[in-house]
Structure formats: structure tokens, C-alpha cells
């Protein structure tokens, strides 16, 4: 049990660091979703099933979804801007 706790906590720390150091938001969205799952696992191991359930639905699903939707929008806007510029140049 102790070993399990130690492992999961180290894993949380490592994942968090990786998420922060990933500079591409699209990859980060996947990372944060994974991080959400790791956190949920930690909550289970530390006897907090209520929180784990919340963390799964929010941290691993709802949050990354919002981020991905926002990124989709941002990417489309960027493409549109580029097209507009190209049109002007042509």
C-alpha cells in the first residue's frame, strides 16, 4: 500500500511537470486529460472515491473537452487569417 502511494504520487509529480513543459497546447490537452486520470487514481488510492469520480468526469473529460473545443476554434481562426493574407497578396 505504501509503495503504491509513493508510486502514484511520484507519477503525479512527473506527469504534472510534463504537462507544464509541453509547449504545444493541443498535446497539452491530451496530457491534462491523462493527468486527470492519474489524479483520479490517486484519489482512489487515498480513500477518496467521491473525489475520484468528480475528478474523472471533470479533469479527464469536461476540461480537456473545453480546451480542445477552444483550440479548434483558435486554429480555424488562424487558418482563416492566413487565407485572408494570401488572398490579399495574390
Amino acid at each position: 500500500m505504501l509503495f503504491l502511494q509513493f508510486t502514484i504520487l511520484s507519477f503525479v509529480a512527473v506527469t504534472a511537470t510534463a504537462v507544464v513543459l509541453t509547449r504545444d497546447p493541443a498535446k497539452q490537452a491530451i496530457g491534462i486529460s491523462f493527468y486527470g486520470l492519474v489524479m483520479a487514481l490517486m484519489f482512489f488510492i487515498f480513500q477518496a472515491p467521491d473525489v475520484a469520480l468528480s475528478q474523472i468526469v471533470i479533469g479527464a473529460v469536461a476540461l480537456p473537452l473545453m480546451i480542445l473545443l477552444a483550440l479548434t476554434k483558435i486554429r480555424r481562426h488562424e487558418e482563416e487569417q492566413r487565407e485572408r493574407k494570401e488572398k490579399k497578396a495574390a
Partner: peptide, 14 residues
Amino acid sequence: NFVHLVICLAVLQS
């Protein structure tokens, strides 16, 4: 990047 920044804020919160 502000989206990256917001995700880091979520990490800080954890």
C-alpha cells in the same frame, strides 16, 4: 500562449 497558461493554472490548482 494563454491556453497553455490556463492549463498550467489547472496544474497549480492540483
